[in-house]
Nucleic acid binder design. Structure first.
Lengths: 203, 203, 203, 203
DNA sequence: CATGAATGAGCTTTCATTCAT
DNA sequence: AATGAATGAAAGCTCATTCAT
């Protein structure tokens, strides 16, 4: 029984991992199910024992990996109390996660937002949670009087995420890495922290 | 030749405009050439008199429309000398352009970056030029001593663009518009301006 | 325009005729669309310009051919007034039609009634009309006092048709033709005529 | 061996019974082996311990059930000597058997004759025996001088069976039962008896 | 004997592209 | 230049069958 579930999750895992590689290389629409099967070392039909269809592979891939990313990020922010420090850490952790798993990052950035299926019909709860980590930090900062009250967390969370995301895209898509992750994370969080601080806290 | 291309430009235009609608509605891969033809009121085969293939429609669409966007942005920044004001204006103009042409914005955001064809092999000159408008402003600001010297324009341009872009995605993909364009543009440019100002200029 | 519709109907016809051959040989479910295409000398995709899907080929085939059969039968009965002679003629015409178009007969007998799609969901209007030719003859016979009043036309039409149909199956499916069509038709109609006559008319 | 096959006959039986239900509901080609397995409460693979393949299930089903039908019919005719009474009884017994086991009847009528496998290559001995019950009765009648000598038993058996069969199809496929079995059996056998009687015997 | 996860051949259907008119 | 009927390659998916456990 234990062995059974292990065997199953093994195939499931192998298929997801193969899909990450294949989708990252070709894009979702240019990837063939048979190519994923070959990369996962299973038969074509086996894919359909673990996933409903090709779309479902992408959705599951996203849900599972995004879930891990969420956990890692929450873990990375543990124990930090200062909102500004939290933003710095978020930026660094985000770019590090992207660097660690470039193929996955490429898929999340490029494929997931491609299809109306995934950004319109598909609710994408996990992504919202990820964004809301940022807005929560900002609200904490506002509650502590560190960040200005006129800042709209809904705008700032998107701006901050977008800034990091565009930087990531540059990393993911270009072969030459001109800027170090640490520096980029530092600069980007710096813009937003300085941009959001109250006069009082700047002293 | 000139006359010829001008005479044909009607069909060419109609196809591009139809493609914008169709790609925005279904995404590039879920769009059929025949649907574009129908929307453009031409025969399927006619498409291939003006474009090499389906990919070429997307590339041409991007090049032509991006060229217009570039011109509009340059025009919008004309006559402004203060770098901070320029960034404010850039933000407002960018979000306004997105709002004006949501279908096009959706394609540029979602479809263009989908395919390795377009972001890896395809050099995407126009997009670089667009980004470089931002870095040029930042460099001007640094030259004038308004923006800090330690800011890396290559990072800042991406961060600033990414912030606006993620905000745009929210507008394009969600039906409810929670934040006004003016306010969002103001806040986002504000973050970056405040975040980049030298101590001296803050006084 | 004329040429156009002629060209279309030509392909449509060729596909139907090819389908008759292929379905008769292999049965509907064992027939491949590509085999029909090859037999019709068109490309696989061409089939789908004229028919919605494989099922649709069978339905159209049935509707069109059954319509012809109906016309031929009505024509064969024209000018006959005596109900008994009409039944005789029906039997002969039915078996002759089967012999003329054995492949078609096999499909109608075997394939059409196979699928719940065709005998349950599909209303099968033409087949009812065909059966009702028989019940109409019987009712005429009853009105004229030739056939007994206690005969239920709804039962008799099915019995008469079933008798002919089972005889046809024998012809269609067996290679050796033991009985002549004329004799079989004569005997079968004879059973029913004798079986339905009133005492008076037997004198 | 005997004990063995008796012990297994449970699973064998369950599979056949499940197949009757599943084939009747979906038709042979639209039925999945796994669905039969589920309905029989056995594993997919178990099916292949008792049957060679999917076709074999249908063949065995037919042979076994048809064998029972043959026995029942022979039993129903036991003790009747008068050929006319025998035909009456045959008709009633046939329609009663159909009503008792509608699912089975539907399969025999619709599925068995569908495939060239079963009506061409497959000799279908039992079905011939069933038909020959009828021709034997007719020959007895002819020997006794009750039925006319010019009647061809090979034609009449098919006509009689076909009449009953078409009536059965009506019952099996339509939800509303307009005619009672007794009346239909009475009328159909009546047609044939009256249609086959010698002049002498009619007095 | 029994299982059911795994297989992979083979099908229907789509649609970008062509080319005779 | 314009058409749109025809093409046929290509891919997602199913399911009968097998075999290691």
């Amino acid at each position: 029984m234990k062995a059974d579930s292990k065997k199953n999750s093994d195939k499931h895992r192998r298929i997801i991992e193969a899909a990450v590689k294949v989708f990252a290389k070709n894009g979702f629409f240019n990837s063939k199910v048979s190519e994923i099967a070959r990369a996962a070392n299973v038969a074509d039909g086996t894919i359909y024992l673990y996933f409903q269809n090709k779309d479902d592979i992408l959705i599951c891939l996203f849900e599972e990996e995004m879930s891990k990313v969420l956990n890692k990020m929450r873990h990375a922010l543990e124990g930090i109390t200062d909102p500004a420090r939290k933003l710095e850490r978020f930026a660094l952790a985000h770019l590090s996660l992207v660097e660690e798993a470039q193929e996955l990052a490429e898929i999340i950035q490029v494929e997931i937002r491609q299809s109306s299926k995934f950004m319109k019909e598909y609710s994408n709860q996990q992504f919202h949670e990820y964004l809301n980590i940022i807005s929560t930090i900002i609200k904490e900062g506002q509650a502590q009087g560190v960040f200005r009250q006129d800042i709209m967390p809904g705008v700032a969370k998107r701006a901050f995420f977008g800034a990091l995301d565009e930087m990531s895209r540059y990393w993911v898509l270009s072969s030459v890495k001109k800027y170090s992750i640490t520096m980029a994370a530092q600069q980007i969080s710096d813009f937003f922290i300085k941009g959001m601080l109250t006069q009082k806290s700047e002293d």
